[in-house]
Nucleic acid binder design. Structure first.
Length: 337
DNA sequence: AAGACGGGGAA
DNA sequence: TTCCCAGTCTT
């Protein structure tokens, strides 16, 4: 806490730190770096400045302001929780850790962050930074992704927390982990804790924390159909379960189906000209996506079968939430027009 | 306990 | 390419 200077990293949710802003920022910051969150946070607060405006907004509008940030269940859960607080709790935010934990999208980390930052309650945050700092300082050779390891770190953190200044303590320990006790190339030589750090003294900093086991990245091939008459195109809303829930994209050519046959049989499309596909690669944490976009020119959409699909003018694209892969294609397509 | 769930910046 | 980030939810 002596080391910590809040003004070193000014962030928009620190400015007027009301509990709504703190909650929103903590949801956005899950698995997401602060500098990536900042522009999303500012746009989002501009549109939904308080609990009421968020709770009353339609979900599709919320998703538009989240599009591109990833982990889209966060936005759905945030919106669900907003409705619970607004309409079932009379618009009054919870005052206790366990009540926050009951809300969708709020787990142990977020409940501790909100109750300590906004309410001054002594709940220790356990995030990637804290796990790393504690594992190194106390030289703990326990993985953080099982219950035994997690309990150990949780116990330690809640013993360490300054009960008179829990917010400052939590912010300080996370900031310290993010900027000094970093995952790679930590600044041990300038670290004010190095003379007491178990890992530093034993030369095991690089081995700690113990690595979690990672799931293999699968390859995923997608073929998209950009069917257009030059002014309009067809888009499709993804299912609300699974990847990119409820976001929009072009209709897809089913695996192993022939383009021309599919256009004839499925869309009842007789007259068209298909371009060579544009290939875009897109890396996700757990999938390596290779997408082929076929642009199919049609004279008009009158005869075309378009059930489950939405016909939109290009200028109306801003009304829909798309994932990053679609955005990448739009950039290429727009540049070539 | 394990897997699903995005995207971007740094190494 | 790989790692990992102010993690949570479902199975």
């Amino acid at each position: 806490m002596e080391w910590y200077h809040p003004d070193d990293r000014p962030l928009p949710w620190k400015a007027n730190a009301d509990i709504y802003s703190i909650w929103l920022s903590e949801i956005m910051l899950q698995q997401t770096r602060a500098d990536q969150v900042v522009p999303y946070f500012e746009r989002f607060v501009g549109q939904f400045p308080d609990l009421k405006s968020l709770a009353e907004a339609p979900e599709e509008e919320v998703m538009r302001y989240w599009q591109g940030l990833g982990y889209y269940h966060r936005a759905k859960n945030l919106h669900r929780a907003a409705k619970v607080i607004q309409f079932e709790k009379d618009g009054v935010f919870p005052r206790h850790y366990d009540d926050w934990l009951d809300l969708p999208g709020v787990g142990p980390y977020t409940a501790a962050a909100i109750t300590s930052f906004a309410l001054g309650l002594p709940h220790a945050v356990l995030d990637g930074n804290v796990f790393r700092l504690l594992a190194r300082f106390f030289e703990i050779y326990l993985p953080t992704d099982n219950s035994r390891g997690r309990k150990e770190f949780e116990k330690l953190a809640n013993e360490l927390i300054d009960r008179d200044h829990p917010a400052k303590f939590n912010q300080a320990i996370m900031d310290f982990g993010a900027t000094v006790c970093k995952p790679a190339n930590p600044l041990c030589d300038h670290c004010p804790l190095n003379s007491q750090c178990g890992a530093y003294l034993s030369g095991s900093v690089a081995q700690l924390p113990l690595k979690k086991k990672k799931t293999a990245k699968k390859k995923w091939a997608i073929t998209y159909l950009h069917i257009t008459n030059g002014k309009q195109t067809l888009i499709h809303r993804r299912p609300t379960e699974g990847i990119w829930p409820g976001l929009y994209e072009f209709p897809r050519l089913p695996d192993r189906e022939d383009l021309k046959t599919h256009l004839n049989d499925h869309f009842k499309l007789k007259i068209f000209s298909a371009h060579e596909p544009v290939q875009i690669k897109h890396q996700l944490t757990h999938r390596a996506v290779t997408a082929n976009f076929y642009r199919v020119e049609v004279p008009d959409f009158t005869e075309l079968k378009k059930d489950q699909l939405t016909l939109v003018n290009y200028e109306n694209f801003p009304k829909f939430a798309f994932h990053r892969l679609m955005k990448k294609y739009f950039h290429i397509f727009t540049d070539n027009r």
